[in-house]
């Protein structure tokens, strides 16, 4: 879907991206993570040609993007930035409709699409359609920012630290919505962050960058269980490693089917970290598990959390 082959970018004497090769597969939720100055934003901004590489080739859906008109390329991709960048003089509706308007969609289709997106992002269409950006909270603004990026049904969504400026509760809600949107639409998402918890929660694959080079690329579990070097271990957080490890797996994967236990059931989709928190809070070493419809699935034991990942 997106491939970098030997890409280098320098700003003056400083090399932001150094001979990078990287592939993002179709349908992936790919998180780029690294300390500031690691080149992660530069990599993202080269994907839609906001920055041009000094050397190397970048292909999107097989095409060398250096041969494409930047505007054409960008209209095929959604782009969300930390500072949102809503157009303050346009209503929410017109902001979301920006790319469809550029592409010349018929009016009725644009309107339907706006309604659909506002609903998808949990904003009441009738209430917010005509509002101006300054009337929205920070979280609502970024919801509109995401809706605007998704408006023209792009195959690729680029997100540059989109939730870093939000408070933890709003950030959590938006992360859950992004995960749901990814599952529902299958859009390829490239997501830049410096927050490892966010990366572990959202990514199907993570790429860790440092000083413009790729340090490690793999699934969240790979990163946690098999860190490439000390830089990765530092990023993952040595002390909290265990909790992070628990956070990337769901209750369903460790549930003992058919067993029962007393108390309110855990949701099968909850993380093992949440399960541990619930056990500590309730002072028990066993909890029942229920599926999405609330039907009993089995039970989870504290001991199950201590096992290594199931590699069978």
């Amino acid at each position: 879907m997106i491939s970098f082959e030997g890409v280098t970018k320098r700003f003056g004497a400083w090399t932001a991206v150094d001979n990078l090769s990287l592939t993002v597969a179709a349908g992936e939720f790919r998180v780029l993570i690294g300390p500031s100055g690691s080149g992660k934003s530069t990599v993202l901004r080269m994907m839609n040609r906001l920055i041009a590489p000094d050397a190397g080739t970048i292909r999107v859906e097989g095409e060398d993007i250096a041969r494409l008109k930047p505007e054409t390329l960008r209209r095929r991709m959604g782009y969300v930035i930390q500072s949102v960048g809503l157009f303050p003089h346009w209503t929410v509706e017109r902001n979301i409709a920006a790319v469809p308007d550029l592409l010349g969609w018929p009016r009725a289709r644009v309107r339907d699409r706006v309604t659909e997106l506002l609903t998808l992002l949990n904003l009441d269409p009738e209430r917010y359609r005509g509002a101006y950006p300054h009337e929205l909270s920070g979280g609502q603004q970024q919801r509109v920012g995401v809706a605007r990026a998704l408006a023209a049904e792009p195959h690729i969504l680029l997100m540059d630290e989109p939730f870093s400026a939000l408070d933890p509760i709003t950030r959590g809600a938006l992360q859950a919505e992004m995960a749901a949107i990814h599952t529902a639409t299958g859009t390829t998402i490239v997501f830049v962050t410096h927050d490892m918890d966010e990366a572990l929660a959202l990514a199907s694959r993570i790429a860790i960058l440092d000083r413009g080079r790729l340090v490690q690329s793999g699934t969240p579990l790979d990163i946690l269980t098999d860190p490439a070097d000390d830089r990765v271990r530092d990023l993952v957080g040595r002390e909290e490693w265990g909790l992070k490890r628990l956070a990337v797996e769901t209750v369903a994967e460790r549930t003992r089917p058919g067993e029962t236990a007393p108390g309110d059931p855990l949701a099968a989709g909850a993380s093992l970290r949440q399960a541990l928190a619930a056990m500590v809070a309730r002072g028990t070493d066993r909890l029942p598990v229920a599926d999405g419809q609330g039907r009993p699935m089995g039970a989870l034991h504290l001991a199950d959390l201590l096992r290594g990942p199931d590699r069978s």
Partner: peptide, 18 residues
């Protein structure tokens, strides 16, 4: 004009004229 607004506009594929 705030820089993020400009960046968002460029990022969604507006040319210099638009």
């Amino acid at each position: 004009v705030p820089e993020p607004v400009r960046e968002a506009a460029r990022g969604m594929g507006m040319g210099p004229g638009a």
